[in-house]
Amino acid sequence: MALLVVKDVHTYYGKIHALKGLSLTVDEGEIVTLIGANGAGKTTTLRTISGVLKPRDGSVEFDNEDLASFRAHEIVYKGVSMVPEGRGIFSRLTVFENLDLGAYHRDDDDGIKQDFEKVYSLFPRLYERRKQVAGTLSGGEQQMLATGRALMARPRLMLMDEPSMGLAPILVESIFDTIHEINQEGTTILLVEQNAHMALQVAHRGYVLQTGEIVLHDSAESLRENEMVKKAYLGME
């Protein structure tokens, strides 16, 4: 069953036509990856889904509901949370305060407590650093924080924008392990990546985005074997 349906979306930045009729779907329980070069429109796609940007044309439906009339914070209530590009942690707030903000709209105290425990067991490092100001965390720890914070919303769909960016190879491995684990526990994930190699290993399906348009979409397996993808995104001849 399709949880997210993006239909023929056109998004602009002023006169810049960033998304030119983009369509994609994400089914409940899937990991779907969106790969593409710099400036292809990956971040714009996620910002359009999350309601920060409104498409000029086309529609975004989540759980069979059109999101057009909802503002960004209301879309969070519906069950969509985001790990933003560059992590977007609040550097002057503590680790605990950052995580707690992830659950800002919730008032089920018991559930929030459970999720804190879940996040801390997923990232024991965050528990050790919970009273520390988030700006002093290392890059890898900040990525854990951004991921943990998105989980604190108890999302049905998690949007992740280049979680592996700027991390050492060993950390990249562990981030993708975590993505797999989160998905196993029932969260649907739309993953934007430039690291197509890793993304196509963890994802079920993938879309290839070029200058605002989907040029290819298929199962992750087939994409890994696709000549064009191999050449352009996997660095293979």
Binding site: V52, H73, S81, P84, G88, F90, L93, L101, Y104
Partner: peptide, 24 residues
Amino acid sequence: TKLGRAMRALAEDKETAALMGIDV
């Protein structure tokens, strides 16, 4: 308070604050 925390988050980054479910 929760409001104060939202204010401090907003001061740092409004877009991300909205993505936390904060009504900016």
